[in-house]
């Protein structure tokens, strides 16, 4: 029961989904789509487990006054805060939707213009309320700047990692370094400053051209082959999992 049944489920469902890829019979696609929906819903339910894990670990730290416990309290506050304002937003959106469907119904029934105008106003007000409230504030003023700034740390890290790693220690490292430097320069307007007049009157920008060539040919070849290898590895791994040859999560 504990391992046999799951192995069977994985194999059966996996093979069915592979079949679905080749077979265009409507009921097969319908069943497969339904299975995907089940998967998506199961994943959504699992989020409860994740949130509980986060809450448990941090609550314990706060209760036991472990190192950095005030920060863990901030984390818990942020979580509860966002859940509550999210719920509030949901409520407002439902209201706006109700107002809107009331308006549509009213229009369809051919009610008096004054009544329709009132409904339009009510609907507009509900929409506006849903659009401007604490949830949007939290989203645009807390969530967005934090995520955009975290992302933008990369601008600094590409510089520091390049400085450290691009050293001509051997042939491989030198190729990496040369390709990176050429592409970096050829990509920005500075690279276009170097110009050569060809005999037929056209202007040739060598750095831009080399950048373009590197990206179109050697880079495309490398990317293509790495992707092909990865696809083969993916087939191997996927089939190992589906056939139950590798099933670390069922060994307990």
């Amino acid at each position: 029961m504990k391992t046999r049944v799951p192995i069977f489920i994985t194999a059966f469902v996996g093979i069915f989904m592979i079949l679905k890829f080749f077979v265009v019979t409507p009921w097969v696609s319908a069943v497969a789509d339904e299975l995907v929906q089940w998967g998506v819903i199961t994943l959504a339910f699992a989020i409860i487990l994740g949130v509980l894990n986060l809450a448990k670990i941090n609550l314990k730290a706060v209760v036991e006054r472990k190192t950095d416990w005030p920060y863990k309290a901030i984390l818990l506050f942020g979580m509860v805060f966002m859940m509550s304002v999210g719920g509030f937003q949901w409520h407002l959106d439902m209201r706006a939707e109700e107002a809107l469907s009331a308006l549509t119904a009213l229009e369809a029934s051919g009610a008096a213009p004054a009544a329709v105008a009132a409904a339009v106003a009510a609907s507009g007000e509900a929409q506006a309320r849903a659009a401007t409230n604490i949830f949007n504030f939290a989203f645009t003023r807390i969530y967005t700047p934090l995520s955009a700034t975290m992302y933008s740390l990369l601008a600094f890290y590409v510089a520091s990692a390049a400085f450290r790693a691009f050293r001509a220690k051997n042939l491989h490292a030198t190729l990496l370094l040369v390709a990176a430097v050429l592409v970096m320069i050829g990509r920005v307007p500075v690279g276009g400053l170097l110009q050569v007049d060809l005999s037929d009157g056209t202007i040739w920008r060598p750095l831009v051209w080399i950048q373009d060539w590197l990206m179109t040919w050697p880079n495309a070849a490398g990317q293509r082959a790495i992707q092909m290898g990865a696809a083969i590895g993916m087939i191997a791994t996927g089939l190992r999992v589906i056939f139950g040859i590798e099933r670390p999560y069922l060994k307990g």
Binding site: A161, R164, A165, F166, I232
Partner: peptide
């Protein structure tokens, strides 16, 4: 196996398993 991220791992990590190596 994400080709666009491999260069960064290669630059900043001690060892990197590339594409199919990672699956194997």
């Amino acid at each position: 196996a994400n080709v666009s991220q491999l260069p960064f791992f290669v630059a900043a990590c001690d060892y990197t398993l590339i594409g199919e190596e990672f699956y194997a």
